[in-house]
Simulated assay, not measured.
Amino acid sequence: MMEKMILILILCIFANGTANAEEETRQYVKFPPKLQLKQLSNMRDHMAALNGILESLAFDELDEAADIAEKRLGLKARHSHDTGNLAKYMPKGMKQAGYNMHSAATHFAEVAKKGNLESAYEALIPVTQSCVECHAAYRTR
């Protein structure tokens, strides 16, 4: 059951990214060079955090998953990601997708701390869905 849920989550994350591989339809968002590097670094950290969350869930370590989510993806983590400077260049929808992801990560952490694995997986879906929606709509290169 757990392996199936992990596979479904991974497929959901990447399925939308390959849907329009032949024709680029995403809105280009131009950041100054240093901020573009910061934004890409943030996205890589988000992916690493999601990987850590999934790994923790796979080993039934819900407190660890919650800790990763809150510290690296949650609402409080926005400040460490320099979102104030980055947000100046983001379209409204991109800002909203980012907020949705951070908010969903905080909610996931709260749910995971309660110790129910199935509920934690369900609470992770809005986190990854926000990522999919943003990456499907926007690009920086």
Rank of each mutant, 00 (worst) to 15 (best):
40 L>T: 05
70 E>S: 09
118 E>Y: 04
126 P>R: 15
34 K>N: 10
10 I>R: 02
24 E>D: 08
42 N>S: 05
73 L>E: 06
72 R>P: 04
87 A>P: 01
125 I>F: 07
104 A>W: 02
57 L>A: 09
128 T>Y: 15
121 Y>D: 05
114 K>P: 13
64 E>G: 10
66 A>I: 06
5 M>V: 02
11 L>D: 12
17 G>H: 13
73 L>T: 03
23 E>V: 03
74 G>N: 05
5 M>G: 06
71 K>T: 03
20 N>I: 04
125 I>K: 09
29 V>S: 03
82 D>M: 12
113 K>E: 11
100 N>L: 06
66 A>L: 00
27 Q>L: 10
48 A>Q: 03
90 M>V: 04
86 L>N: 08
60 D>W: 07
19 A>G: 07
115 G>E: 11
37 L>C: 00
36 Q>E: 11
48 A>N: 11
47 M>T: 13
70 E>V: 00
32 P>G: 14
41 S>V: 02
126 P>V: 11
29 V>G: 02
97 A>N: 06
105 A>M: 11
45 D>H: 13
80 S>W: 09
124 L>C: 02
101 M>L: 14
91 P>M: 13
100 N>H: 07
91 P>C: 13
44 R>P: 00
63 D>E: 14
32 P>S: 13
89 Y>N: 05
61 E>N: 15
98 G>K: 01
21 A>C: 05
89 Y>K: 10
47 M>V: 04
104 A>G: 06
69 A>D: 02
123 A>K: 00
52 G>V: 10
28 Y>G: 04
134 C>G: 09
38 K>R: 14
6 I>M: 09
97 A>D: 04
123 A>N: 03
41 S>D: 13
97 A>F: 02
108 F>D: 01
94 M>C: 13
26 R>M: 06
53 I>T: 03
6 I>Q: 12
88 K>I: 07
41 S>H: 15
16 N>R: 13
74 G>Y: 07
7 L>A: 14
120 A>D: 03
27 Q>T: 15
99 Y>W: 03
99 Y>N: 03
30 K>E: 09
128 T>G: 01
130 S>H: 08
104 A>V: 01
33 P>S: 13
42 N>T: 15
94 M>P: 05
115 G>I: 09
105 A>L: 14
52 G>K: 00
62 L>D: 02
114 K>Y: 07
119 S>E: 14
73 L>K: 15
64 E>D: 12
109 A>K: 07
115 G>M: 02
68 I>Q: 02
29 V>T: 11
50 L>Q: 07
115 G>W: 05
10 I>T: 10
113 K>V: 06
134 C>I: 15
128 T>P: 04
36 Q>I: 14
99 Y>T: 08
86 L>A: 10
97 A>L: 01
4 K>A: 10
70 E>M: 14
47 M>H: 06
96 Q>F: 01
72 R>K: 15
83 T>H: 14
89 Y>L: 11
83 T>I: 07
38 K>I: 10
23 E>D: 04
41 S>L: 10
32 P>H: 14
24 E>R: 12
92 K>L: 08
125 I>S: 11
69 A>E: 09
130 S>Q: 10
77 A>N: 12
